[in-house]
């Protein structure tokens, strides 16, 4: 696979539930190493798109190439290998409630690599620290964590196998503004240091303005536009205009213009 070839390539995707068509003729390319933000109204099928890419939902038509391989026709053993190269953070964390945070992170390490419990624990603690969680959270159960800590623990689990692509489904939803800003910076740091590609579903305009390289707008059952924010903002489409030129959009843009220097990175 050459460097220019997109890491995810979607062509003519069609998803439907019964008669209800969610996506129709959807095209999208995700480039290696970028942070792409996917926006769209509630119910426009952002999560459905993510599930289709990682192979959790079967599209009705179209092709999805992940690392240059077709997700739909992949053999099970191939799929298992590809899945190890993807980290996924689900909207509600989806932490295993019967395991501690450290065990949650360690599951994939134990299953896929023949490692001592000692090394697994050490690597799990490293991921937990990378995700910005205090280490005393490692022995806690998910039900004992706050909402923001659940997101970070889920991020730590998604980083467990050092994935190449990170799928984040509304990572900052439900976080306070300070926590959300720190989370944004964390993702930026991880992308820069680990060389991740980040597929980010979000409603958070601040996230879009601070960390996304490109923004893909999902509306009318397809990707209307996928480009840098400057270009996307100018697209003459009522939904996009309302989204970016509304009071919240304007406030978020003003905020980035005044804070054009990025906040210091750190957990």
């Amino acid at each position: 696979m050459s460097a220019e070839e997109p890491i995810i390539r979607i062509r003519g995707l069609r998803n439907q539930f019964g008669d209800f068509v969610v996506h129709e003729n959807l095209d999208l390319d995700v480039r290696r190493g970028e942070i792409i933000g996917v926006v769209g109204g509630s119910g426009s099928g952002k999560s459905v798109l993510m599930r289709a890419i990682i192979g959790l939902g079967r599209p009705a038509a179209g092709s999805i190439l992940l690392f240059g391989e077709d997700v739909a026709t992949m053999s099970d053993s191939r799929r298992a290998l590809v899945e190890q190269r993807c980290g996924v953070l689900f909207q509600n964390g989806a932490l295993f409630s019967s395991l501690t945070v450290a065990e949650n992170v360690g599951v994939a390490l134990t299953e896929h690599h023949d490692l001592d419990a000692e090394i697994v624990h050490r690597l799990a603690l490293l991921k937990i620290a990378l995700a910005g969680l205090p280490l005393d959270a490692a022995d806690k159960f998910p039900s004992q964590l706050s909402g923001g800590m659940v997101k970070r623990a889920a991020l730590a689990r998604s980083l467990a196998l050092d994935p190449e692509i990170l799928f984040l489904d509304e990572p900052t939803a439900g976080l306070d503004p300070i926590g959300a800003a720190a989370f944004d910076q964390l993702i930026l740091t991880l992308r820069d240091s680990l060389g991740l590609t980040v597929f980010l579903i979000t409603h958070d305009l601040d996230t879009l303005y601070t960390i996304c390289d490109r923004v893909a707008v999902l509306a009318k059952k397809r990707i209307l536009v996928a480009d840098t924010l400057d270009v996307v903002e100018q697209v003459d489409e009522p939904w996009i205009q309302e989204y970016f030129q509304g009071p919240r959009g304007r406030a978020a843009r003003r905020a980035t213009q005044t804070h054009s220097t990025p906040l210091p990175a750190g957990p």
Binding site: L126, A129, L130, P134, L135, D136, A137, A138, D139, T189, L190, S193, L194, G266, P267
Partner: peptide, 13 residues
């Protein structure tokens, strides 16, 4: 550098 920062986090009992 990122890993080093993470490893310097105060250890838990």
């Amino acid at each position: 550098a990122a890993v080093s920062r993470a490893e310097n986090a105060p250890p838990a009992k």
